[in-house]
Simulated assay, not measured.
Amino acid sequence: MVNLFMDYKEVKSIIEGLLFVSGSEGMEAKQIAEIIEIDVEEAVDICHDLAADFRREGRGLQIVEVAGTFQMTTLPEHAPYFEKLAYQPQQASLSQAALETLAIIAYKQPITRSEIEEIRGVKSERGINNLMAKKLIQEVGRTEGPGRPILYGTTKEFLDYFGLGSLKELPPPPSFLPQDVLEEERLLFDQRSIFTDTAGESSSHEPEE
């Protein structure tokens, strides 16, 4: 039964927002149902209804169900345009935010998006997507926790990009201190010279992109 305090249209709108913010990890119907306080079967039906809306309206996004998880993704036929965006010359260099995300993955891999965001203190989905598009990181598996979040790690292209023979050539990693996330990040990037020197980035902290 749909939440008594919300009508069907509102519930569908909330689910659309949830799928958007969950990114590539998506959400299981059970998670959606618990958040909105509706039946699991109702959550599944609404996701299917929402997917039909997207198809009927010719949207640039789609909702797909993969192994019981609903995800909002781009259309496969649009992939060539996204590749052009990712590899435009002005997109070649890495922003400070992307460098931070990449360094965290390099030192802490395999690591989930939520763990990266816990360290950085900001959303990192866009930075992760950019790094994926540049083939500097890749999906290396999934955790066994709820929703089975994606684990990320670096690639051979990462080593080539920074002129490394192996991950062993990275500077010694800092001590990660969960009780002090900001200090943890500062310590990490005190040792990021191989990133900034190679990519030619400024040392100012930029917002996530």
Rank of each mutant, 00 (worst) to 15 (best):
R120M: 01
K108A: 08
L102E: 14
G145S: 14
P89S: 07
T112L: 06
N130T: 12
I128R: 06
G141P: 08
P110S: 05
L151P: 03
M132V: 02
E115C: 10
I119H: 01
A106Q: 00
P149E: 05
K134T: 08
R113H: 03
T154G: 06
K123M: 15
L99W: 06
N129G: 12
K134Y: 13
Q91P: 08
Q96L: 14
L94C: 03
K134H: 10
M132C: 14
K135Y: 08
G141M: 02
I119Y: 01
Q91D: 10
Q138D: 12
T143N: 01
P149F: 07
V140I: 15
I104N: 06
R126T: 11
E125H: 13
Q91I: 10
E139L: 14
E125L: 10
K135R: 09
L136Y: 08
I119P: 00
A92Q: 15
I116C: 02
R142L: 03
R113K: 08
N129M: 10
I116Y: 06
P89F: 03
Q138S: 12
L94I: 01
L136C: 05
S93V: 09
N129K: 11
I137M: 11
Q91C: 05
E125G: 10
G153W: 04
G153S: 00
Y107M: 01
E139D: 12
S124W: 02
A106L: 00
E115F: 13
T112M: 04
Q90T: 14
G153N: 07
L131N: 00
